[in-house]
C-alpha cells in the first residue's frame, strides 16, 4: 500500500455516528500509517471538568486533550484505508504524557495517527497516537491502546505488569448513576451506544451500559487531585467494564519504589489500574 496523504483540518471534523457504525470491508492487511491534524483545537473545559470532578484551576485537566482530538481520532479510524471495523473495539490501555501545563486560554493544535498492530490473545491490538502542541511545541501526548476482536488472536496468555508495592492512602466509594455515560457523552462527544442506555448497550452484548474508560480515568485522576501544573506520565489499564448504575471503590497510594502514585478502581475485582509518575 502506498503512503496515505495526511488529513489536514482547520478544526477537528465532526464525524457522525453513522460513519463510525457503517460496516466496512474487512481487510487482513496491516494498519497503514494514517495521520490527521488540526490547526486549532477549541478549549471549553468547564463542563468536562464538572462531570469528571476536576476543580477549575485555569489549566486543562490531563485527560481533556483527548476530547479535543476526538474528531481527529475518528477521522483516522474511519479512513477508508483503516482495515478494522470500529464497532466492538475495546479501550484496553492508555498512556498520557503531560509535558507541561496547558492553560485553558492557550491556542492549541493537534494531530493523531495510527500505524501497525500486534496480535494478542483475543484479537489484534493497535495504538492510536494523539498529540497536542502550542506554537509547534508538544505539550501533551497520548497513546490509546485498542483491542479489536475482528481478527483472531493467538490465544497466548501474556503476564500482566504487576504494580510495584504500594499502600492505600485514600479509599472512597463512588456511586455511579445510571446516566453517568450520557453525562460524559454530552461533554466529550463520545456517543458510543454501549455507554448510553440499557437498550443500546444490549445491542452490543452488554446487559447494562458501561462507564467510559476515559471517564473512569479522568475521575480517578481528579480524585488523585494531581496538580495540573506538574508534568507527569500516566499509565492506565482497563481490565473490566464498570457497569452503570453501580458502585466502585477507588483506592490510591504512593508506590514504594518511586515517587509515583498507584490507583485502582475495583468492584469485586480490579476494573481499572494505573500509575502516575511526576516527570
Amino acid at each position: 500500500m502506498g503512503v496515505i496523504a495526511p488529513l489536514r483540518f482547520d478544526v477537528p471534523p465532526a464525524v457522525s455516528l453513522f460513519s463510525v457504525a457503517m460496516p466496512r470491508k474487512r481487510n487482513a492487511g496491516e494498519i497503514p500509517r494514517i495521520e490527521a491534524s488540526a490547526q486549532t483545537l477549541c478549549v471549553s473545559a468547564a463542563a468536562y471538568s464538572r462531570v469528571c470532578g476536576f476543580p477549575e484551576t485555569g489549566f486543562v485537566p490531563p485527560t481533556y486533550p483527548d476530547v479535543l482530538t476526538r474528531g481527529l481520532q475518528l477521522a483516522v479510524l474511519t479512513h477508508g484505508a483503516f482495515p478494522l471495523p470500529l464497532l466492538g473495539i475495546l479501550h484496553t490501555e492508555q498512556r498520557i504524557e503531560l509535558l507541561r501545563p496547558v492553560a485553558v486560554d492557550e491556542v492549541l493544535s493537534g494531530r493523531c495517527w495510527v500505524e501497525g498492530s500486534r496480535v494478542v490473545r483475543k484479537g489484534v491490538e493497535f495504538d492510536l497516537h494523539s498529540a497536542v502542541s502550542v506554537a509547534g511545541e508538544d505539550v501533551w501526548s497520548g497513546v490509546t491502546t485498542i483491542l479489536s476482536r475482528a481478527r483472531t488472536g493467538d490465544g497466548v496468555k501474556r503476564p500482566r505488569p504487576q504494580p510495584a508495592g504500594w499502600t492505600a492512602q485514600r479509599s472512597v466509594v463512588w456511586s455511579l448513576p445510571p446516566d453517568q455515560g450520557r453525562r460524559y457523552a454530552a461533554v466529550s462527544g463520545d456517543n458510543n451506544p454501549i455507554h448510553l442506555y440499557r437498550w443500546s448497550a444490549k445491542l452490543f452484548g452488554f446487559s447494562r451500559p458501561i462507564a467510559h474508560g476515559w471517564w473512569t480515568l479522568a475521575r480517578a485522576l481528579a480524585e488523585l487531585d494531581l496538580s495540573a501544573e506538574r508534568p507527569c506520565v500516566i499509565n492506565a489499564r482497563f481490565l473490566a467494564p464498570v457497569p452503570l448504575p453501580g458502585r466502585v471503590t477507588f483506592e490510591s497510594g504512593p508506590l514504594q519504589t518511586s515517587g509515583g502514585l498507584h490507583f485502582e478502581l475495583r468492584r469485586k475485582d480490579v476494573c481499572v489500574t494505573g500509575e502516575v509518575h511526576p516527570t
Binding site: 476536576f54 476543580p55 484551576t57 492505600a168 492512602q169 485514600r170 479509599s171 472512597v172 466509594v173 481528579a222 480524585e223 487531585d225 496538580s227 471503590t249 477507588f250 483506592e251 475495583r266
Partner: peptide
C-alpha cells in the same frame, strides 16, 4: 485490611 471507602478521598487542594 481496611474498610473500602473508609479512608475517604481528598478535597481538591486548590479548593
Amino acid at each position: 485490611k481496611e474498610i473500602p471507602g473508609n479512608r475517604g478521598s481528598a478535597w481538591p487542594e486548590a479548593w
